[in-house]
Design a protein around this nucleic acid. Structure first.
Lengths: 108, 108
DNA sequence: GGCTAACGTTAGCCAATACTGACAGAGGAG
DNA sequence: CTCCTCTGTCAGTATTGGCTAACGTTAGCC
């Protein structure tokens, strides 16, 4: 559950979502990623650290360069988390639509 | 995309996730929700406002009480957002596993 | 060794935000 | 109308977190 927390905090920042979308389509070096934005390389590097700690991206060394790409399994963990709440909320929506159980007991 | 941003920011807070999980299983009044935590009712009320603006919960009046429950369609929007990135990251993982295209072109 | 390129790290600044306490409004019981 | 309950709102405070600038580190080239 700790990873879910870090992953959601990571995705809560628009800049990090953009970064993640970049490396979800291509494996890119830190410099290439930084060039895509108007903020400092420092800021991008910090964002990459956050994403890495949340296990949403993978890092690979190539000389002095560091290549990043999105991690499918990290995203999948979030998918399942949302799926559970989605299913539960569908369930209660159905129960309320049919008339709430307690309401049924009280009336019927 | 604006709603995705608000929804992710809303879920980034642990307390709000707990609240959402509560109202994903049962429709509860503001007071009942607040009683489940050790923070002030004020704090919980503010969290509920954030969740409502993100369209993650629905509010229903019953006398002076306000009943809240999770919104399936709000969660579904997030599910689809994650699905897209997940699919893309799977795609690049497969490409890299088979040997990167550029690498193929350079070697082969 | 000396030099450059590509990155990460640290310190400090500032805006965003989660929290508390005090107050205000709406609805039901007497 | 009065009192009480349930709840949202406002002002102020403390913490979180994203940003920049300066510095340190590693790999490759001469």
């Amino acid at each position: 559950m700790e990873l879910i927390d870090q992953a959601l905090k990571a995705l809560a920042e628009p800049r990090r979502r953009e970064i993640l979308q970049l490396v979800a389509h291509d494996e890119l070096a830190a410099g290439e990623i930084a060039a895509a934005f108007e903020v400092t390389r420092t800021a991008v590097s910090q964002h990459l650290t956050v994403l890495k700690n949340a296990e949403l991206i993978d890092e690979r060394r190539d000389g002095t360069r560091r290549l990043y790409r999105a991690r499918p399994d990290g995203l999948d963990a979030l998918r399942r988390f949302l799926d559970d709440m989605w299913a539960a909320s569908l369930d209660i929506a159905r129960r309320l639509a049919e008339g709430d159980e307690k309401e049924m007991r009280r009336v019927g």
